[in-house]
C-alpha cells in the first residue's frame, strides 16, 4: 500500500493500517540516523516551511532536523517575526508563503482546526505540528514508535496518561492512536483537568494516581502549564505536585517493567522528579530521537511523490 493522503492532520482519522505503515517506514529512517552520514537526498529540491504560531523549541527543531536530513530546503517562520500581528489572517500568511513556491507547511497553531483550514484551502501538504488542545499527530506517532521499540508492540498494553488531559493535544492524539493499536488507555487528573465525556473516547478516568498506575506498562506524564493555577482549575501548583507528581513510591504500583514517557519539556520536580526523568526507566530521550525518524517518515510519505 502507499500513503495516499495530502496532509497529516490528526490521529483520529488515520486507520490502523496507515499508522503501521508510517511506523514501518520510520524504521528505515531511524536506521539512517545511526549512519555516519545521517542524511539522504530524498527531498532534494523540495521546500518545507515551519509555520509556528506558538513558542516551541523542540518540535520545531525536530521537524527542522527531519527536513534537513531529507535534504529539503527549510524556512522557519514564527509568531514574533510574522506579519500576523499586523492583522494578516492565517490564510493570507499561508497564501503569501505559497506564492514563493513551497511544497509543504508544517503548522503549529493555538487554535484547533487551523491546519484543517489550511489543508482545505491550499494545494500543498499540511502537517499538523499541534493545533491548540486538539491534536499533535507526530507526537503520538513517535510515542507509538518508542513503545513498540521498547515493548515489542502496543496491543494489550495498559497505558496511563497523567496530567492536564483537558488542554492536551498530546493526550487526544495518543488516546486515539494507542487504542487503534489495541492498548488500554487510562487518563488521570484532577476533575477540573478532565474534559467532559472523555470516557466516550474509550478511556477510563481516574482521579487517583495510585489507582491509575496499578498494573500499567507505560506511564505518560503530561506537562502541566503553570498558568492553570490562576484560572480556577487548580488551587495551587504545590497541591498538584503533592497529588499528581510521579514518585518512586507511586511508580512501584505499576508493573515492575513499566516505563515512563513525557512529551517534554519536563517541569522537573513537578510532573516527575529529576531522578525518574533521568533514570533507566525513562524513555524521554528515546522519544526525542525517534521523533526525528518519525517526522522524516511523515515528510517522505507526504512529499516523496509528485
Amino acid at each position: 500500500m502507499g500513503f495516499k493522503r495530502k496532509d497529516l492532520l490528526g490521529m483520529e482519522d488515520l486507520s490502523k493500517e496507515e499508522i503501521l505503515f508510517i511506523l514501518k517506514t520510520a524504521e528505515s529512517f531511524r536506521a539512517v540516523l545511526e549512519r555516519p552520514i545521517r542524511k539522504v537526498p530524498t527531498l532534494r529540491g523540495k521546500t518545507v516551511v515551519n509555520l509556528f504560531f506558538e513558542p516551541s523549541t523542540r518540535t520545531r527543531m525536530s521537524f527542522e532536523l527531519a527536513e534537513k536530513r531529507l535534504n529539503a530546503d527549510v524556512l522557519n517562520f514564527s509568531t514574533s517575526d510574522s506579519s500576523v500581528i499586523k492583522g494578516e489572517t492565517l490564510l493570507d500568511t499561508a497564501r503569501n508563503i505559497l506564492a514563493m513556491k513551497v511544497d509543504c507547511l508544517v503548522l503549529r497553531h493555538p487554535s484547533p482546526g487551523a491546519p484543517h483550514l489550511l489543508a482545505k484551502k491550499i494545494p500543498v501538504s499540511v502537517i499538523n505540528a499541534g493545533d491548540g488542545a486538539h491534536e499533535h499527530p507526530t507526537q503520538a506517532l513517535l510515542d507509538l514508535y518508542t513503545i513498540r521499540e521498547k515493548k515489542g508492540g502496543v496491543e494489550g498494553l495498559k497505558i496511563a496518561i497523567i496530567g492536564d488531559i483537558a488542554h492536551s493535544r498530546v493526550a487526544r492524539s495518543n488516546i486515539w492512536a494507542l487504542q487503534k493499536l489495541g492498548a488500554e488507555v487510562r487518563v488521570c487528573a484532577p476533575p477540573t483537568l478532565i474534559p467532559p465525556l472523555v470516557e466516550k473516547m474509550g478511556v477510563r478516568v481516574f482521579y487517583s494516581q495510585e489507582d491509575a498506575l496499578k498494573e500499567v506498562d507505560i506511564i505518560m506524564m503530561l506537562r502541566i502549564q503553570k498558568e492553570r493555577q490562576n484560572t480556577g482549575l487548580l488551587p495551587s501548583l504545590a497541591e498538584y505536585i503533592e497529588l499528581f507528581s510521579l514518585t518512586e513510591e507511586r511508580l512501584s504500583l505499576a508493573k515492575p517493567d513499566a516505563l515512563i514517557m513525557h512529551p517534554g519539556p519536563v517541569n522537573r520536580g513537578v510532573e516527575l522528579p529529576a531522578k525518574l526523568a533521568d533514570g533507566k526507566r525513562s524513555l524521554i530521550l528515546n522519544q526525542v530521537t525517534n521523533g526525528v525518524a518519525v517526522r522524516m517518515a511523515v515528510l517522505y510519505l507526504l512529499l516523496g511523490k509528485s
Binding site: 500513503f3 495516499k4 517506514t25 528505515s28 517522505y300 509528485s306
Partner: peptide, 8 residues
C-alpha cells in the same frame, strides 16, 4: 504518484 515502500 506513490512512492515505493522504503525497505531495510
Amino acid at each position: 504518484a506513490y512512492q515505493p515502500m522504503v525497505r531495510n
